[in-house]
Design a protein around this nucleic acid. Structure first.
Lengths: 261, 261
DNA sequence: GGCATTCTCGTATACCATACGGAATATCCG
DNA sequence: CGGATATTCCGTATGGTATACGAGAATGCC
């Protein structure tokens, strides 16, 4: 299931944390008074990401991150207001890892290939950080990483000359598809790795389904596809094919809209 | 974030629980010996669903469900092997609530309208049970509800005469899109309800983003869309439009593939 | 009535986030 | 050099989670 997070009570502090590296640093006289910090926000966030990558999202607990950094649990609260915000920071950190051409930087000429870049970078991100699939995307962290992604995707669609509203709508539809399909794929691989059991073995354990419970009369379409060899050899192949196929058809549909103008 | 569940160690018992109401009951002599049960599996599952509906997935803890049923926590383990399985049973229960025409039952003539039915029933399901969006869909419960959904969707696509493999692939792509978009929508409404804060209020709290951090030079596409009034009035409208738009374009693309045969 | 069988559930374990308050350590100011 | 002040560090306590274990209660069969 998915982990909750919302943004907490002080949106201003959260924004300042999210954008901590994007602005000059605002060095206002007041320099140093009091004990020197032994950590910094980036270190805490990176430790959280590393733990989640290596041992799953649950391992990125406040206690776990603190132990990884060699400090007491409560020390983290000096750097981050709560677990929710830490998660937001982790999410935006990895969103920003995607290497999406900034405005003015070289990119493929074809809009579909540009969307391809978004898709592949996002897929790679989910592969590196499968725990992302378990974090809710409603009210996401509005940090540099998320905005860069939205900006790039919108920019790929502008040449289609859809109405501004349709352009935005199309971008939302694409992110919905890409993010969830890429997330499912990554989670699927992750489950095979952490359980040490392939999906095929998992299905094999459930062969009773077909022998005992499945009623071909109630499932004629499935039965037809089955007998016509419509099921791929592996679950992974099926998922990969479905990802590509769905994205291609979605882009076909958007292209057709644009052509009809 | 999403909640984990995999299926546990005894797939046969899990399958028997999932399909408990689909088979005659297998009354083998051995009837009664020992203390009479005070509950049954259906009651436990329904209590779990009701709690999750009313107070969120976290409220459907083993202790919470037991308290709602007026028994001790450990009593539940007589009916259900673990929390994982309970969750699987809850998921298949609500998947089965969708009123999808069975083979032979009347349905729209047009394949797109048939997919529409799947989409709307699934959307309604997520609205009734927003916690579903937080449950992982890798290795889902292979019960009657899930199979009925797959069967129906495949059956809507057969008339397109795609290859068996493409038919299956297209069905996977559609469920990926519909399930995740419907889940996001439901979760979004849920968040507004439980936090008591509209998305607009949430964005308003973050107006510092635009005033302090946003750099129009780095985000020309967003800025263009903004000035062209490309953003809907409410987040809800934007999400609903994106859902419809994306599904329509995806189906356009699939239709085009079929026409090209 | 005895006894096998089955259900019931209190207790213990090991996690989780975080409120609170006090101790440690740094600079600033006199 | 000596407080005063500011800041970080973190032990402890609280209330939550799933579930292993084993004792106790209720039932039907003989």
């Amino acid at each position: 299931m998915t982990v909750r997070h919302s943004g907490g009570g002080q949106p201003e502090r959260t924004l300042a944390l999210l954008w901590r590296n994007q602005r000059p640093a605002a060095s206002d006289g007041r320099r140093s008074a009091g004990r020197r910090p032994s950590l910094d926000v980036d270190g805490v966030v990176r430790a959280g990401v590393r733990l989640a990558d290596e041992r799953g999202l649950d391992a990125a607990s406040m206690g776990g991150v603190a132990k990884a950094l060699g400090v007491g649990t409560m020390t983290l609260y000096t750097y981050v207001p709560s677990k929710e915000e830490l998660l937001d920071l982790m999410v935006d950190e990895v969103l920003a890892e995607r290497e999406l051409p900034a405005p003015g930087e070289p990119r493929p000429t074809n809009w579909r290939e540009q969307v391809e870049v978004y898709s592949e970078e996002t897929r790679a991100m989910f592969q590196r950080h499968p725990w992302l699939a378990r974090v809710s995307t409603v009210r996401p962290p509005v940090g540099p990483g998320m905005l860069a992604g939205r900006e790039y995707l919108l920019s790929t669609l502008l040449p289609l000359d859809l109405s501004p509203r349709d352009t935005n709508t199309a971008a939302l539809a694409i992110t919905t598809y890409v993010d969830s399909a890429a997330g499912q794929e990554a989670e699927s691989l992750q489950v095979e790795r952490t359980t040490g059991q392939s999906h095929e073995a998992w299905w094999h354990e459930r062969s009773d389904l077909w022998e005992t419970y499945f009623d071909a009369g109630k499932h004629p379409a499935m039965t037809t596809i089955w007998h016509a060899n419509g099921y791929q050899d592996t679950v992974r192949e099926a998922a990969t094919d479905a990802y590509r196929y769905g994205l291609d058809r979605l882009l076909d549909g958007i292209q057709a809209q644009s052509d009809a103008l």
